[in-house]
């Protein structure tokens, strides 16, 4: 197993390198400059700005320098926020995003898993139809809609939560629910599907034939089978949930990392954009690795090769 992990880690590093290289190129060949504005920027100032960020050097030199810095853990200077480094901005914003993400995840797993399990066990009853209809709504109502609705009811009409911003546990609740609900819906459907498949399988029939109680059959055997597709889904889902949602963080004006995926691109804040891409990529790659490892524990049929 250690060999498996080591082999995969090498893969992770190579993939990361490819991602960084491609992103670097795509970002740099995009037309438009981080320094452009309505008012013409004086040539000398433009030169000074380019020199400050190292853009006066040939692109390949900039690339190698950047790779060198990334290896050292230095993600460069932000261009838009002129007195901050990218490391600093990520250090400030990522934990906030992760707080929302973590709560959203708990909400999603709790609601999704319980809902899906009930629906599967009570297949084709009004419980099943009811829960799956709600899940369908959950999938179809994106945070773009659920966010403002939550604000309207729980921040404006009922002043229980702040409308936006950051600072207390209250600020985290609405964004987390808004973000988590879509995932909850997916998880519910996946759990239901996974469990139904298992419930019809031979070993469940054997378990029932052996006279095990229905509770034991569901909790000990069916649930475990139901988890598998959810785990597959959770890898990338956790990664994207943890680096933040552009929409949710904009609606709730959360000082997290999500909005940078869009804003840094619009601002041509090259290093900040690269920074958030790298963080996302690392999350995604490591979580996928974790998922693969988890498979081995959940499903004995899967072997580490």
């Amino acid at each position: 197993m250690l060999f498996f992990i080591a082999k995969r880690l090498v893969g992770v590093v190579i993939t990361l390198f490819v991602i960084i290289t491609l992103s670097f190129l795509i970002i740099r060949i995009t037309p438009g400059s981080p320094f452009s504005q309505e008012r013409d920027v004086p040539v000398e100032v433009l030169e000074a700005l380019k020199a400050k960020y190292g853009f006066d050097k040939p692109l390949h030199k900039q690339y190698f320098q950047y790779i060198g810095n990334v290896v050292k853990g230095d993600l460069g200077l932000s261009i838009k926020y002129s007195n901050r480094t990218v490391n600093e901005i990520i250090k400030i914003s990522l934990p906030k995003t992760m707080q929302i993400g973590f709560l959203a995840l708990i909400w999603a797993i709790l609601v999704g898993f319980v809902g899906g399990a009930i629906a599967a066990v009570k297949q084709n009853t009004k419980w099943d139809y009811g829960l799956m209809s709600i899940a369908m709504c959950g999938i179809s109502i994106p945070p773009l809609v659920s966010g403002p609705l939550l604000i309207l009811v729980f921040a404006l009409a009922l002043p229980w939560f702040p409308t936006s911003g950051w600072g207390s546990w209250k600020h985290v609740v609405l964004p987390s629910i808004s973000l988590g609900s879509v995932y909850a819906a997916y998880i519910a459907r996946l759990t239901r599907g996974g469990m139904l498949e298992v419930i019809r399988s031979n070993y469940i029939r054997t378990a029932r034939a052996k006279g095990l109680s229905e509770k034991a059959v569901v909790v000990k055997h069916a649930l475990k089978g139901g988890i598998l597709p959810v785990v597959t889904f959770l890898g990338p889902a956790v990664a994207s949930i943890m680096v933040g949602s552009v929409v949710v963080e904009k609606i709730f004006n959360t000082p997290g990392m999500g909005p940078y995926f869009v804003d840094a691109a619009f601002n041509r804040d090259y290093f900040l954009l690269m920074g958030v891409v790298i963080v996302y990529a690392v999350f995604l790659l490591l979580l996928n690795l974790l998922v693969d490892i988890a498979y081995g524990f959940i499903d004995p049929r899967i072997r580490f090769e």
Partner: peptide
């Protein structure tokens, strides 16, 4: 000075006196 970037959250925050 509170940093709110978009019009909708700005309006909501103003309404409740943030």
């Amino acid at each position: 000075a509170i940093m709110i970037e978009n019009a909708q959250p700005t309006m909501n925050a103003y309404k409740v006196g943030q």
